[in-house]
Each structure stands twice: as structure tokens, then as C-alpha cells.
């Protein structure tokens, strides 16, 4: 599948995954990949301190106002980013409902905290409602959302359907119903799960995927398997075999052999987990190789965007729905 087709499939991509799997890095790489294919992208960050700005070479944290990471250029779409917090979304919601004067007072007095704690999922629905509004307004060709870590992401994405069944009427229910509609329509929104080729992340991804589909009516896109280990050639022979007849320090030969075995073992774990994921979760996979780097900056984001584009290129287009 070519990258353009992939980017045009849904207006919103929600990137979710267990903490530490590189969710934010993949958010940045997806955005960069789409921008290089000519699409304008808005990244939405929901939690602070995600490292998103660093992935684009900026230092300060994101705020409610949009920041431009990449200007549009011939053949390239721009990449912009902003943060949406529940408090911001709530204030905006109240203002949209004619309560501009008291919105600050409601938030500051703690009343909102009590009510939002008692009414399940209200905060999540407000945030998703804001994303829905951005999608409706067509603020960018593609909106990429850096979702909370799974666990919370499941609550986050299933809150709307929970609220729809808990509330019998009212404007909030309408808002929740709109969100459910957004999440259920693959042409508008899909969830991209990110995982690592390790036992625990793979198990959690399989479990989350089924929970999200069953409870949230969420549409899942391909799963990104981050930091896959490609096995270099030439590790078939043991150090002793390869070094036969050579004058090599025995201690060094031992180190070479230990390193060889370690690499082979880690690789076989990684391959086995990718296989298990493919078997237990019938979703296409995007394999992104591990990059050796002390941190993620613009250069690494570009490298990963290219790797992601290669993986997207290897996707087999789905047969059109009957």
C-alpha cells in the first residue's frame, strides 16, 4: 500500500500502547511520514512531558495554542501540534454552551472535580469531543493523537459508550454519542496500537485490542511493532569456528561468542513474539526496526518515518468491504 493511500484512510489516528513502547516516538514518526507524503498533520498531545517536542527539535512544552513543527513545503504538508487537557476542553465546552461567565468559577471552586468524578468518563468524553470537533472542522488532513498509556487508554476510549448507556438524555449524552460515532467509523478514526516484540507488551496488546473492540466499538488499524531486531548476517558460525587458525586472544574469542549467543537469543525471543502477535491478533503489522540512539530528535524521527513508510509499503491493501 502506498503511504498516501494509508494516510487518506482515516482523518484521525489515535496512537495507544503500554508505557515505554515508544508511543510518542511513533506518533511523531507517523506525523512526519504523512507530512512527507504531502498531508498536513495536526498532532494532539493529551499528557504533559511526552517528549513530543524533543522529537521535532524543540525544547518547550506544548500548550493549548498550536505550534508549528514543520512548515509546509513543495510536496510536503505542515506538521503542527497542540495539547488538549480535560480542563481546557471543559472550559471550552461550557463557553460553547453559553456559560462563559461562570466557567472559570466552576472549575476553580472544585465543583467540576466533584461532578466529573461522579459522572463516569466526563473528562475523557470532553477531550474526545474536542478532537471530534477538530476533525469536523477539517483543521488538517490527518490528526494524530498521542493517547494515554494503555490501561488508561482503554478507559479513555470506552468512556463515551459508557456515558451513552449511563445517561438518558442531555447535551453531554449527545456529545458522547458523537464521540462513539467517530470512534466507530474507520473512515474517520482508527486506533493504532504500538507494542514491542517482548512477551509482556505483546500479551497486553492482544488483550487491549480485544477489549477496545468489544467494549468501545473502536476501529483498529495496523499494529506497530517498534524496536524489532534485525539479525545481521554472518552469526551462523561460532566464534571458535569462524576464528579457526587465526591468532586471536582466547578471552576476546569468548567475548565474541557470548555476544553472538546473546544476539541470537534476543532475536529468537523477538521473532517468537512477533509470530505470537500475528497468530493471536488478526491485524496487519508494521515492523519498525530498533535504532541505536541516545535520544529521539528530528534526525531519529525522520529515520523512523522512513522505516514506517517502508513498513506501510509492505502492507497488503484490504479487500473492499462487501
Amino acid at each position: 500500500m502506498d503511504v498516501g493511500t494509508f494516510c487518506a484512510q482515516s482523518h484521525v489516528l489515535i496512537v495507544a500502547g503500554k508505557g515505554g513502547v515508544g508511543k510518542t516516538t511513533m506518533t511523531a514518526a507517523l506525523a512526519r511520514m504523512a507530512s512527507r507524503a504531502g498531508y498536513s498533520v495536526l498532532i494532539v498531545e493529551l499528557e504533559g512531558k511526552s517528549g513530543l517536542t524533543g522529537a521535532f527539535g524543540l525544547e518547550h512544552d506544548l500548550g493549548y495554542e498550536e505550534v508549528e513543527f514543520h512548515a509546509s513545503a513543495p510536496g510536503q504538508g505542515c506538521v503542527r501540534a497542540r495539547r488538549i487537557t480535560p480542563d481546557d476542553a471543559l472550559v471550552e465546552y461550557l463557553e460553547d454552551h453559553g456559560l462563559r461567565r461562570i466557567s472559570k468559577r466552576l472549575v476553580n471552586s472544585g465543583v467540576v472535580e466533584v461532578v466529573s468524578s461522579a459522572i463516569p468518563g466526563i473528562r475523557d468524553v470532553l477531550v474526545l469531543g474536542k478532537i471530534k470537533q477538530l476533525e469536523r472542522d477539517g483543521v488538517a488532513d490527518l490528526i494524530v493523537v498521542d493517547a494515554p498509556a494503555t490501561g488508561h487508554a482503554i478507559t479513555f476510549l470506552t468512556s463515551a459508550s459508557g456515558l451513552v448507556s449511563a445517561a438518558r438524555g442531555g447535551p453531554l449524552r449527545t456529545q458522547a454519542a458523537d464521540v462513539v460515532e467517530l470512534l466507530g467509523d474507520p473512515a474517520r478514526c482508527r486506533v493504532i496500537l504500538v507494542t514491542l516484540p517482548e512477551e509482556m507488551p505483546v500479551s497486553e496488546t492482544i488483550e487491549s485490542a480485544f477489549t477496545l473492540e468489544d467494549k468501545g466499538g473502536v476501529q483498529l488499524g495496523p499494529v506497530i511493532v517498534n524496536a524489532t531486531d534485525s539479525l545481521p548476517e554472518g552469526l551462523e558460525l561460532s566464534a571458535e569456528e569462524a576464528g579457526a587458525g587465526l591468532d586471536v586472544d582466547p578471552a576476546h574469542l569468548r567475548a565474541l561468542e557470548e555476544a553472538r549467543r546473546f544476539r541470537l537469543e534476543r532475536h529468537s525471543i523477538s521473532a517468537a513474539q512477533i509470530g505470537r502477535l500475528a497468530q493471536d491478533l488478526p491485524l496487519p503489522q508494521l515492523l519498525v526496526p530498533k535504532i541505536d540512539s541516545a535520544g529521539i530528535g528530528p534526525a531519529e524521527t525522520d529515520t523512523l518515518a522512513s522505516a514506517l513508510a517502508v513498513a506501510v509499503g509492505a502492507l497488503v491493501p484490504e479487500a473492499p468491504a462487501p
Binding site: 461532578v115 459522572i119 445517561a167 447535551p171 449524552r173
Partner: peptide, 17 residues
């Protein structure tokens, strides 16, 4: 305050709360 909240969130949700 409750009336305001009912207006925003829906009366039944507030009654439940």
C-alpha cells in the same frame, strides 16, 4: 449550581449523582 449543571450535563445525570 445544580440547575446550571443540569443544564450542561442533563438533569438525570445530576439527579443520579
Amino acid at each position: 449550581l445544580l440547575r446550571t449543571l443540569s443544564k450542561v450535563a442533563g438533569a438525570e445525570i445530576v439527579q443520579d449523582a
